[in-house]
Amino acid sequence: MDKKKYLDDLHAIKYMMERSSRFISLSGTSGILAGIFALIASFIAYITVYIKPENMGYLNTDLSQESKFIIMTIAAATLLLTLGAGIIFTSKKARKDNQKLWDRQSRRLLINLLIPLVTGGIFCMILLLKGFIGLIAPATLIFYGLALVNASKYTLSEIRSLGMIEIMTGLFASYFVGFGIFFWSIGFGILHIIYGIYMQRKYGS
């Protein structure tokens, strides 16, 4: 009885089921970098926008034309840096795993990530236009979390847990309006760094 052959068959079946349905080359390094960029960005945003608290508990914001411009610039720069690092390190990882960066699996992952994410983006623009500034940070966290949960079917299962934690962080943030930037730096900064280190340990780079 050649047990070895059957064991190999079983491994081949499992591998092919994973490979054909999920994008498995997520890079932990890009998670860590995204977290670091987010922390730096939220620190700069904090010193630009927030005015020293006059009363306990609630922080006042200064949203002059000038500081709005600085915030927009920081946001755009963070987005570009994060995307750039993500693409570079994910394609490195994909090459190592012998998987293509742009294939059926990664396309499906991206589409399912983008549906809630773009909805959230538009929703936050509307919040900004209507002046509901306090709810923007919580909304970005909640929609990002929902996007991760939705996309997790097409990639590594850890993404689902990360998504759930982001949603919870967002819900806390929406209750404690005025501390948006702190929750934001936890959700996008610290959680990404923890997640990145965990993925690096588990799957390598």
Partner: peptide
């Protein structure tokens, strides 16, 4: 057979696959 096993495994977890995706996978 390795290829046929691969085809079946991939089709079990996907609604369908076209020829080129199967070729790429296997």
């Amino acid at each position: 057979n390795k290829t046929r096993l691969g085809i079946m495994s991939a089709l079990m977890v996907n609604d369908y696959l076209d020829f080129s995706s199967l070729k790429e996978l296997l």
